[in-house]
């Protein structure tokens, strides 16, 4: 019996037992995201990619307005906070005067696909050599669950309480397919982070996106992450991931859309 009590947590936390650790490009600050939300995973995967590429001193990130407005508190690289929707313009300004640095934006659906539509399309059309990360959860999380440009038809939000009526409120916008048509995008992919397998794929996508920029590949590398919003969708985290698989993925199909400047035939 006594043997059981002699092994403490401190006995396990030893360098030789270490198999995985938090990237040092995430700060120790407690995440402001709701438990169950995909943002934290997406943050960490992106920061792991930058760390593994050895670019922590050569990266400048641009945070959006939305749930991830405080992304700069968690991402341990030089960061700028943009006005709502303007991150692609801000990133353009940075990249044009520091062409050898890695520049990325991290934006939600309201930021990238509603108020910032113009900036998104034109940064992509100019072929800015930046990485754009697009977290699509189909809802406005921070302001309390209002309809997003990506809200699915019939989906209930606080500003579509009887479901999104596409005749009155318009259709969900597939921004990723839209910008993939532009010659200024080099790599366009849609991923998820709700399972270990999906997270691994997303990390590969982030790495590829940043590698494109390191290699000076022409144009934007664009990674959409279809994510959940269990608070906004008013579900448990597990239910929200299930709902996402059943409803979001059929509409926002996962996988590469454009690789090395060429659209993928489907």
């Amino acid at each position: 019996m006594s043997d059981i009590h002699t092994l403490s947590v401190q006995d396990i936390i030893k360098p030789e037992n270490l198999v995985y650790e938090k990237t040092k490009l995430m700060t120790d600050k407690t995440l402001s995201y709701c438990p169950g939300c995909g943002h934290g995973t997406a943050h960490r995967l992106m920061m792991e990619a930058i760390e593994e590429l050895g670019k922590e001193n050569d990266t400048i990130g641009v945070a959006p307005v939305g749930c991830s407005v405080l992304a700069y508190e968690f991402m341990n690289v030089d960061m700028q906070e943009a006005a709502h929707g303007r991150a692609p313009a801000v990133a353009t300004g940075i990249k044009r005067v520091w062409p050898n640095k890695l520049v990325f934006t991290y934006q939600g659906d309201g930021d990238l696909a509603a108020i910032g539509t113009g900036e998104t399309i034109h940064a992509c059309n100019r072929g800015e050599q930046i990485v754009m990360v697009f977290i699509n959860n189909g809802i406005y999380g921070m302001t309390g669950g209002q309809m997003a440009p990506t809200t699915l038809p019939e989906m209930k939000t606080s500003t579509s309480p009887y479901g999104r009526d596409v005749n009155m409120m318009g259709n969900p916008l597939k921004m990723t397919e839209l910008i993939a048509q532009l010659p200024g995008t080099h790599y366009v992919t849609r991923q998820a982070v709700h399972t270990p397998a999906a997270a691994r794929k997303t990390k590969r996508a982030f790495k590829k996106a940043f590698q494109n920029q390191i290699d000076g590949k022409p144009g934007v590398s664009f990674v959409e992450v279809v994510s959940n919003c269990n608070s906004g969708w008013k579900m448990t985290p597990i239910d929200s991931n299930k709902w996402m698989e059943e409803n979001m993925f059929p509409f926002y199909e996962l996988g590469d859309i454009k690789v090395d400047g060429k659209l993928i035939e489907k």
């Binding site: 943009a82 303007r86 801000v90 353009t92 940075i94 113009g118 900036e119 034109h122």
Partner: peptide, 26 residues
């Protein structure tokens, strides 16, 4: 010196934000 025609004045001023925030003259 870099010169870029932005898609709008809104984008232009935010390009100044990005470039200026790095210590460059925008």
């Amino acid at each position: 010196m870099v010169v870029l025609q932005a898609e709008s004045e809104v984008a232009a001023i935010n390009m100044l934000y990005g470039a200026g925030a790095t210590g460059k003259k925008a």
